[in-house]
Every structure is written in structure tokens, then in C-alpha cells.
């Protein structure tokens, strides 16, 4: 596997406070890599170091194999969009795109067609308003478009949906999803749902440290909850099933979820339970309308990891 971005023992201290503590990460090329953590976990500081805006106290950063030095950015290889993008309010989107393109030594018809393509992609092709009057969602989409002008290999997004309403969030998420496979996307978020929705690899941070770094699938399989969900036709049957299962030696906990009219069952062995529970229900004459393994959510995993620390 080739890695587009690597950090080695990356550390950032502000006086006695350690914001980022010995982070070693390898970001595979063309992945959508999510940095997940609560506020103050060190996500933004990490991204700022990756973009050359903050000097690491120690450690190294390599982009495409080349060592990154503070104050020097990898001009066209890295596109950065901050959490609340601020551009020149007096410019119009097309004007900003042209300015950014010119900064990257791009001009002429190729730049014009690239701008048209990107503005179309982010849904701002007909926008003739000044940036100062754009909504946050539009600014975020414009931020992504301007970051793509130079055709970067990595797009770094710092909490891209944090300041957006549900519609703006959905638009930005769709946009990020559409970029998957075209370039490496590195995004930070404290929104577990966002990360779970679009990232194929996740770095979890807490208090400046990495608490997990793996693919979403692997994280979920490592964290098997051993929980099943069961539904019957009515509450009477559900209660009968609950009392039946409570007496089983391999069942750890049975909980009636009244809002869903279902049972949540924690078991010792998930595979065995998938066999004996339907069998018990069948013997007791309780028809099942739903029986499934409960998939652990990233939120449950994150909370477990943080609590364990």
C-alpha cells in the first residue's frame, strides 16, 4: 500500500500543555481518512501542522515521501479548507477562483474551464453574489472548489460540517463523497455520524493521543458488542421472550426497548446465540418478526475507548 502522508512521532506543545502527543500516522493514497475526536482532542492542531501553518514541537511529516518544513507548503499537492472558511468578502466566487488559479500560475482557457467545472461540481456555477453574502454552506462548498483548483493530491478539511445546517451539511457530505477515489481526503470531525458515513479509515484522537487508527470495518469487528435485537408481534410475547432468555446461562443481559418494541440481548457468544435463541423461541411458540445482530456504532466504540482511558 502506498502512503501519501506520513507522520512520525508528531508532537505539539503549547508551554506545559501537550496538544498533540507522539502521533504516528500513515494515510493511504486515495483514501477518505477521518480524524475523529472531541473538541480539544488535537485535530485542528494536527491539521495545521500538516498544512505548514503550525510548527511541530518534534516529529516529522512527509507528504508524498517529501519532508514537510514549517512555513513551507506543498503548493499544489495539498488543498486546505478550514472549519469556517474566510475569504475576501468583496470578491465573487468566480473572482476568488480566478485569483487562486493565478496564484498557482494557472491562466487562460484551461483555468476558465477548470473553474467552470469546479463551480458546477459544488453547485455554485450561477452564483454572482459577493462572498460576504454567501451562506456558510455555500462558503464551505466554495472552499472545497478553490482548494481543488490546483488539482491537489490531498484535500484537507477541518470540521467541514461543524457550522452547517442539515441541508448545508448534506450538500457538503455529498460533495466529499463524490471526491472519493479522485484524491486523498483527510477530514477532521467531532461528528461521529459524518465520519462513519464517508470515511474508510479512521484515526481517533483523545487528549492529543491516538486511541485508534484503522479501517472502519476493522474497528467495528474489533469491537463486537455481542448484542442482538429481537422483535415479536406484541408486547406480551416480547415479555415472555424476555423472561425465557433471562434464565439462560449464556445470556448476560436482556433489556426491553419499549420505543422500538424489541429486546436487546447481550450474550457471551454471538455465534452460539444466533442458533440457540431462535430455537428457544420456536420451542416456546414465540414467532419472531425480527432477529438481527446489533451493529456497533462508532459512537459506542469511541465512548468505550475514551472511558477506558
Amino acid at each position: 500500500m502506498s502512503y501519501i502522508l506520513e507522520t512520525g512521532q508528531l508532537c505539539k506543545k503549547f508551554g506545559a500543555f501537550t496538544a498533540v502527543n507522539n502521533i504516528t500516522v500513515k494515510v493511504p493514497a486515495l483514501s477518505v481518512y477521518g480524524i475523529l475526536g472531541a473538541n480539544g482532542a488535537g485535530k485542528t492542531t494536527t491539521l495545521k501542522m500538516l498544512c505548514g501553518l503550525s510548527r511541530p514541537t518534534s516529529g516529522s511529516i512527509r507528504i508524498d515521501g517529501e519532508e514537510l518544513q514549517f512555513g513551507k507548503t506543498h503548493d499544489s499537492r495539498l488543498g486546505f479548507v478550514p472549519d469556517v472558511p474566510q475569504y475576501y468578502k468583496w470578491m465573487k466566487p468566480r473572482e476568488l477562483m480566478l485569483f487562486v488559479g493565478n496564484l498557482h500560475h494557472k491562466q487562460g482557457p484551461s483555468l476558465t474551464s477548470r473553474i467552470d467545472e469546479l463551480l458546477h461540481k459544488v453547485g455554485l456555477e450561477g452564483c454572482n453574489q459577493k462572498i460576504g453574502s454567501l451562506s456558510r454552506g455555500m462558503k464551505q462548498r466554495l472552499g472545497i472548489a478553490q482548494a481543488l483548483i490546483s488539482e491537489p493530491t490531498i484535500l484537507v478539511l477541518d470540521e467541514p460540517t461543524s457550522a452547517l445546517d442539515p441541508i448545508g451539511r448534506s450538500e457538503v457530505m455529498d460533495l466529499i463523497r463524490s471526491l472519493a477515489g479522485e484524491l486523498t481526503v483527510l477530514l477532521s470531525s467531532h461528528n461521529l455520524h459524518d465520519v462513519e458515513e464517508i470515511c474508510d479509515r479512521i484515526l481517533m484522537m483523545d487528549q492529543g493521543r491516538v486511541i485508534a487508527d484503522d479501517s472502519l470495518l476493522s474497528i467495528k469487528s474489533q469491537f463486537a458488542l455481542n448484542t442482538l435485537e429481537l422483535q415479536t408481534e406484541d408486547m406480551y410475547l416480547l415479555q415472555s421472550a424476555a423472561s425465557l432468555l433471562s434464565g439462560h446461562s449464556e445470556v448476560l443481559e436482556v433489556e426491553i426497548l419499549e420505543d422500538k418494541q424489541s429486546l436487546s440481548i447481550s450474550v457471551v457468544n454471538l455465534r452460539a446465540a444466533q442458533i440457540y435463541i431462535p430455537s428457544m423461541m420456536s420451542s416456546a411458540g414465540i414467532p419472531l418478526s425480527l432477529f438481527k445482530v446489533t451493529e456497533p456504532t462508532l459512537e459506542q466504540f469511541f465512548l468505550k475507548m475514551v472511558t477506558a482511558r
Binding site: C51, G52, L53, T73, H74, D75, S76, L78, G79, F80, P82, V84, P85, Q86, Y87, Y88, V100, L103, H104, S150
Partner: peptide, 12 residues
Amino acid sequence: NGTAAFLLTKGL
């Protein structure tokens, strides 16, 4: 305003 960071991540 954050516009300095915006420009300086353009390789300027």
C-alpha cells in the same frame, strides 16, 4: 480573518 492562512496554504 483566516485569509493569511488561506493564502499561505497556496504555497505563497
